[in-house]
Write a protein that binds this DNA or RNA. Structure first.
Length: 575
RNA sequence: GGUCCCGUGGUGAAGUCUGGAGUUCACGCCGGCCUGUCAAGCCGGAGGUCGCGGGUUCAAGUCCCGUCGGGACCGCCA
């Protein structure tokens, strides 16, 4: 039907008789016998010179034949990859006349209401930006598959209809027709199955897996999302990190053409101390500065007795922060959980301008200036609180002040390792698992499980890119004795463990190999590599924030007969 | 469950704070002119339940209440 793609024609094709197919992007009329018609396909746009009597309009589907020729001097369009050529004396075959689209099929639609774009997603996707995003996604999928297969991973598909499990994210339920009143769940991840594949001796499993979680949507969260899911037997943490690193870096290289440097590693503790978060954005400084010891003997009441005192120095921010802005910053810090926020502006003469300056000794003031590196015109913000609160609040303020849009280069990948085994406590005072209850403790800390569980680190790890959590994984407990100890630390007795997790752990009795794995979100990686800050832009048919699809009008009510068959009766709507 | 922003011809905006005739700008659409444009240009034209419902008022796009839709975030996402 065609000999070339619109976007691939160059001067080397001059003289060739070609046929292209596509959509009319634009028509420019110049009199009775001359019009330019730009024809667009997924590869790009090419200008065709036609007689003005031909009736083609925006988005008509056409097949155009003619001779490729260099454009006359002075008419080259440097903004177009095909801008040095045109198809001359073109004959036009209208394959389908089109109604004018509701919005322009070009970059101007970037500003169109997203609900409208989603209602006409098939038109939105016709645009070059969206075509590029779809293809970036395909490139990432392909590169990831190749990288995993080269490392001996075997692709295994796992079921979409799985049992409901009490832990973790809210699930989507699927009613059973054969057994009314019973339900399947859609998988939030293939966790159970991939570990059983290790028991089965698959050794290295991977899957580009669809996962579903019925939690509220965000710019980086959809009900349905794709993960590179992997699990490996007879490995230590480093082996998993290496294997996943290869896949991620291969994907990045396939998209950008450049091999990123090896992914650095940072302990969770260091990340919290320096960046106040477990997903640090390493593209900018503004690191948290330790001040606790400098105020060990302070008489300033707000600092005395505080667990941890830290500060950040925002260069040049003093002038832009009058009392109003500083009050707002203080409110923000309180909203984030701090008791308060101490601010100091460095005056031109180096003096500290702050309501608390008079409470600080000369040595304390000097220490603040020296450690934060504050200079004239800088703004220093200090939080004194429990360690976790201090880090968290300053980490958020650091992001507020310094964080570029997520897609701005450079790409800074980092593995966060040595997460705490337990984070916080539940309503009955029992430790809660930081990752999940099958995570292997750090070998140096396992002996602390009984005595001081909160001090135990785990072999869990996260992959972070530019402040976005791409994914997480862990080495799993394969030994039933150790698993019992962890359950004990979690306050789960043997009967409860068997009730809650028996279906999962009993198979281990038949010989579970040491194993560990990882899963990372492909939507997020693709968005970052495509330069998008919203994963909806890299998903062909996403849902809105309220979980609806304006194109298909889902979700929808169904016929009562359908519900009868499933044994389901509607309750009256709550008002 | 909560906080905030947005909703005005097909599209994007201005008008809303401070009520006074559906007013304005750009794009698109329809018709005409036009032989080298490329967001072509020029002339003319059509196109509206100001998201929806209620209230206040002599008068509501504008003020108040409710509701629906879209977005950002908190909670939530072991």
């Amino acid at each position: 039907m065609r000999t070339h793609l619109c976007g691939e024609l160059r001067t080397e094709h001059a003289g060739a008789i070609v046929t292209v197919c596509g959509w009319v992007a634009r028509r420019r009329e110049h009199g009775e016998h001359l019009a330019f018609v730009d024809v667009r396909d997924h590869a790009g746009v090419v200008q065709c010179v036609v007689d003005n009597s031909i009736d083609v309009r925006s988005e008509y589907v056409v097949r155009i034949s003619g001779t490729v020729r260099a454009r006359p001097d002075g008419t080259v369009n440097p903004n177009l990859s095909t801008g040095e050529v045109e198809i001359g004396d073109a004959t036009v075959d209208v394959l389908h006349a089109a109604t004018p689209p509701p919005f322009p099929i070009d970059e101007r639609a970037d500003d169109v209401d997203e609900g409208v774009r989603l209602q006409y997603r098939y038109l939105d996707l016709r645009r070059s930006r969206m075509q590029r995003n779809l293809r970036v996604r395909a490139t990432v999928n392909s590169a990831v598959r190749r990288a995993m297969e080269e490392q001996g991973f075997v692709e295994v598909e796992t079921p979409m209809l799985v049992p409901s499990t009490p832990e973790g994210a809210r699930e989507f339920l699927v009613p059973s027709r054969k057994e009314p009143g019973s339900f399947y769940a859609l998988p939030q991840s293939p966790q159970l199955f991939k570990q059983l594949l290790m028991v089965a001796g698959v050794d290295r499993y991977y899957q580009i897996a669809r996962c579903l979680r019925d939690e509220d949507l965000r710019a980086d969260r959809q009900y349905e999302f794709m993960q590179l899911d992997a699990e490996m037997s007879f490995v230590a943490q480093d082996d998993v990190l290496d294997a996943i690193s290869r896949a991620v870096l291969a994907a990045a290289e396939a998209v950008t053409g450049e091999r990123p440097p090896e992914i650095e590693r940072m302990t969770w503790r260091e990340s919290m101390e320096r960046f106040g978060t477990d997903k640090p954005d390493l593209r900018f400084g503004l690191e948290l500065v330790e001040l606790t010891d400098a105020f060990a003997a302070t008489e300033f009441k707000a600092f005395a007795g505080a667990g941890t005192i830290k500060g950040i120095c925002v260069p040049g921010a003093a002038a832009a922060h009058g009392r109003n802005q500083l009050d707002k910053l203080t409110d923000r810090a309180k909203q984030l959980g701090a008791k308060g926020l101490v601010w100091l502006r460095v005056a031109d003469d180096g003096a500290l301008d702050s309501p608390v300056a008079k409470f600080l000794s000369a040595a304390e003031s000097a220490a603040v200036v020296e450690r934060t590196g504050a200079a004239a015109g800088d703004l220093v913000l200090i939080v004194a609180d429990e360690w976790a609160t201090t880090c968290d609040v300053l980490g958020q303020l650091r992001n507020d002040f310094g964080r570029p849009p997520v897609f701005h280069g450079p790409y800074r990948y980092v593995w966060i390792v040595d997460f705490p085994m337990f984070v916080g406590t539940d309503d009955q005072g029992r430790p809660k698992p930081g990752h999940h209850p099958f995570t292997m403790p750090h070998p140096d800390d396992a002996h602390l499980l009984g005595r001081d569980p909160m001090a135990v680190r785990s072999q869990a790890y996260d992959l972070v890119l530019n402040g976005w959590e791409l994914g997480s994984g862990s080495i799993r407990i394969h030994d039933t004795t150790l698993q019992r100890q962890v359950f004990a630390a979690l306050g789960i007795d043997e009967a409860a463990a068997d009730r809650k997790f028996g279906f999962f752990l009993n198979p281990f009795e038949y010989g579970a190999p040491p194993h560990g794995g990882f899963a990372f979100g492909l939507d997020r990686l693709v968005a970052l590599l495509a330069g998008e800050e919203n994963i909806r832009e890299v998903i062909a048919f996403p849902k809105t924030q309220s979980g609806a699809d304006p194109m298909t009008h889902s979700p929808q009510p169904v016929e009562p007969a359908l519900l009868d068959q499933l044994g389901i009766r509607m309750l009256p709507r709550r008002t």
